[in-house]
Structure formats: C-alpha cells, structure tokens
Simulated assay, not measured.
Amino acid sequence: MSAVQITDVDPAREDEILAWNALLGEGFNAGREAAWWASDETTLAQYGDPKPGRTSVLLVATSDGRPVGAAGADVDPGEAADVEISVLPQQRRQGIGTALAAAVRGRLRGAAELLQAETYSEAGVAFAISIGLRTGHQERRLLLDLPVDLEALWAHHARPDRAPSAPDVQVRSWTGACPEDVIEEWTRLTTQMEEDVPLGDLTRPAARSDVDSVRRGERRMADQGWILVRSLARLDGVGVGYTELFVSRHDPEIITQDDTLVDRGHRGHGVGRALKLANLENLSGVEEARGARWIQTYTAPDNTAMLALNRAFGFRDVDQLTILEGPVG
C-alpha cells in the first residue's frame, strides 16, 4: 500500500462534506445492525451554520487516490473534543487509523486538552488504547422494533402490580419547542440530567442548561431537521421528570430515544413508565415517524432500573458503546 495522504475537507463545499460524511459513516457503522448516521441534510445544516465558538476538524485519508478513511472532531471552548475515526473494513491494520489520529491531534492542539472517542468493537477499543486513550464509560445500545402495539403496552404497564404509587402525577406531551409556561421546569430538569447522567471515568462537562441555551438548542435541532417529541411529568404543579424522542425529517427510519429523567425524590413510583407510555402515544401522532423501523436508546450497564424498564417496553440489546478519553498531546 502506498503512503496515506490526509487532507482537510472544506465545509463550504457541499460535495466534499457529503462525501466525507458518507465515508465516515461507512467505516464507523460497518457490520452493525440498524446503525444511525447523520443524513446529508442534517450534515449540511450542522456545518453550514456552525455553533459559535466551536472548532471542527474534518479529514479524509486517501491511498493511490482512493478514499480509505475519515475522521471528524468537534470541540466547544473548555470542553473535551468529540472525535470519530473511521477506516474502511478492507483497509484496516495498515496504519490509516494511526495517521488519522495523529492528524486530528495536530489540528486540535490549542483548541482542546482532552479528546473523547467512541467505538462499538473490541478492535476499536484496542486501537484507541494503542494511541494513548483509556476506557472511560460504556453503554448498551438497545433497539425497539416498530410499530409497537400501544394498546398492549398500556394494558401490560397499567396492571395493578405496576401502577404508580404517585397517582396524582400528570403527564403533558407535545412536539417541538418547549411551551413557555413550563420552560423553567424543563430547564431545571435538563440541568439535573447533565449532573446525573452516568459518565463513568470520563471528564464531566460543566452543566450548561439555562433557558437561552435550551432555546438555542431547539432552534439548531429544528434547523437540522429534527422533530422533538416530548413529555413532562408534573406533581402538584412541579416538574418531576421528562423524556424526549428525536425524529429526523430527512431520515426517520431510526428514532432516537434521548433523555429520560425522574427527579431523585420521585423514583421508583412509576413516573418513568408513565412518561415513556405517554411519549410513545405522542409519537404515534407524528406523521414523519409513520415509516420508522426502530427506536434506539442507550443505557449504562449499571443502570439496572432503566435497563429493566426499557426491556419491559420491548427494547433488545444489539451492541455496546465504549467511550475512551485521553490527552490531545
């Protein structure tokens, strides 16, 4: 194999960025079942209107003029850089990943001190360790096959032995931006999620949720083609939990189950179950989700309560995400 050449992708050139995104996804998701990847439209929106202050690195590796791998990195000021490195399966174990990692590190110097990288394979973990990263956190990826039988789910989860012991909890559902009358509660709960979410030995970013950041995030998600499907649980007029699903207008085949949080003082009373039931019913009214085949979610192995709840809804384990961390160097 001839020498590997690493070149930067110009995010202003649509053809380059779309080819880069496809190459990165092809290598990263090789051999995985129902693996989500950002659509062309989402990618163009993301890099066409970059987040203020964010540094992005987009690289392609070629050999003999043929693309053989790609890498991407995004970092916000004061945070660890999120890095993805991808090599086509038939081109692995030839030093391409090592060359891409060195190039990413070189371009991140001065922008970040730490980097975090994700992989779904043992080989990926071994490679990351070989370039100086350490395992920081693992999560199981689960899939729920669609469509679901909502009537059967309601009947199963509303059995007397499964009824919430806090029957006065009310669940409010909507799609899109958070209603103005509950935005403060939503912001408080999402801040708690940032503080509570299991991250193992990874460096935890500072909590950043406030009303303005929530609204900016909603606008960016909408601009990238995401429909936000949300439910909020309230007790005596106070928010005690929330859950949200993301549906891509451009590629709705895989729906993402994002956060589900129940306030610490209200766990174990069926609030999470009520939220998930309500939000699945909410999802059934989203036209863009009618052709979806799966809902994807992630749960830490030691989060036994959430694993049990997800499995009770029909989610099944498909693979394991490992996140590794190390110095930019």
Results as ranks from 00 to 15, higher is better:
residue 166 A to V: 00
residue 117 A to Y: 00
residue 33 E to C: 01
residue 37 W to H: 13
residue 138 Q to P: 06
residue 221 M to I: 00
residue 131 I to Y: 06
residue 3 A to F: 00
residue 148 V to P: 01
residue 309 L to K: 11
residue 172 R to K: 13
residue 232 L to M: 13
residue 26 E to N: 13
residue 208 R to T: 15
residue 17 I to V: 15
residue 175 T to N: 10
residue 91 Q to D: 15
residue 149 D to I: 02
residue 184 E to W: 00
residue 251 D to P: 00
residue 272 G to W: 03
residue 125 V to D: 12
residue 43 T to Q: 04
residue 138 Q to L: 07
residue 178 C to M: 13
residue 125 V to K: 04
residue 6 I to V: 14
residue 196 D to Q: 10
residue 68 V to M: 14
residue 244 E to Y: 01
residue 282 N to I: 00
residue 307 L to N: 11
residue 10 D to F: 03
residue 265 G to L: 08
residue 100 L to K: 04
residue 42 T to W: 05
residue 113 E to Y: 00
residue 298 Y to H: 14
residue 324 L to I: 02
residue 38 A to F: 05
residue 265 G to H: 09
residue 74 D to S: 02
residue 37 W to K: 09
residue 224 Q to W: 01
residue 244 E to N: 08
residue 95 G to F: 01
residue 319 D to F: 02
residue 145 D to C: 07
residue 127 F to C: 12
residue 220 R to E: 14
residue 90 Q to P: 10
residue 132 G to A: 09
residue 234 R to E: 15
residue 211 V to E: 14
residue 165 S to G: 06
residue 79 E to N: 06
residue 325 E to M: 10
residue 223 D to V: 01
residue 231 S to G: 04
residue 118 E to R: 12
residue 134 R to K: 05
residue 317 D to Q: 03
residue 187 T to P: 07
residue 304 T to Y: 06
residue 30 A to K: 05
residue 295 I to A: 11
residue 169 V to L: 13
residue 235 L to F: 03
residue 255 I to A: 11
residue 35 A to Y: 01
residue 259 D to G: 12
residue 130 S to E: 11
residue 263 D to H: 10
residue 35 A to E: 14
residue 311 R to N: 13
residue 30 A to L: 03
